[in-house]
Nucleic acid binder design. Sequence first.
DNA 1: GCCAAAATCACCCGAAAGGATGACGACAGA
DNA 2: TCTGTCGTCATCCTTTCGGGTGATTTTGGC
Lengths: 148, 148
Amino acid sequence: MKRHVLIYGIIGGILITVLQWTQYRFLIIEHSVEIYSALIAALFAILGIWLGLKLTKTQEKIVVKEVPVPAVDPFVPNEQKREDLGITRRELDVLELIAQGMSNREIAEKLYVSENTVKTHSSRVFDKLGAQRRTQAVQLGKELGLLP
Amino acid sequence: MKRHVLIYGIIGGILITVLQWTQYRFLIIEHSVEIYSALIAALFAILGIWLGLKLTKTQEKIVVKEVPVPAVDPFVPNEQKREDLGITRRELDVLELIAQGMSNREIAEKLYVSENTVKTHSSRVFDKLGAQRRTQAVQLGKELGLLP
DNA sequence: GCCAAAATCACCCGAAAGGATGACGACAGA
DNA sequence: TCTGTCGTCATCCTTTCGGGTGATTTTGGC
């Protein structure tokens, strides 16, 4: 945009020079100041109009582009909810693995604990969620924001 | 925008008039044509610059608004996938109820069939999904777009 | 160091789930 | 009409799950 103003100034200077040169060339002929004034004014007015039109033409419109962003849902583990329900971290660990479709035995191996331990954790988390089955516990866990 | 050009022209006309009036008032004093030319040129140049700046200033920007659209995911039941896997509608019905945390008995009551029938359907769908447990079947079903 | 909560493990029992197999009727398409 | 698929139901058997109870060890905070 600054370039436009600069160009405008330069063109103005050139025009003045041209006009002065023209004036000296026809010095013998007597021209009235009014004519020169009008000429200069007209030229600059035309220039201004042209500039205005140009600026108008290149004017950009408001483009409110509503990009449907993936809305990736970062899923922050809902610690607060977990605490509220009195579910311990370990119990939630087990619940997560249950949600992934693992058996108690597989979970036990993955967590390096006995299957009995896993059963204890799962029983407790079911109790705290009010679930009778693991599928139900998973469903409730997701509804409560405990699981992704 | 056309208003700007109009205003510019009007202001130009007024200025010329003012200048001419000024000239007649100090007619006795001899002013050179160059001074008037320069004066007019300067005034119009300033006006042009002002106009340019104003146009620049009011120029509107592109607003790329990234609206995190709710992304509600309507979930269209993936019939194609179901067919590809050779899973029947009835089997998918059972899978959906399993995903909701229901027991075989509850599903049987809901669908008005025997528990044995539910077990048959579930066994078949597990087989087709390659699942050993219902939690795993649910997980796979969601990954494959069979379930919401 | 003490205490409470958390995590760990064990055993028992009944219910639920899962696997295998067979069967039967309905229905659509060749 | 014959065939294949689908939905239905059953029986037998094994595995997994869930509930209950009790116990020991770890851990974190005071």
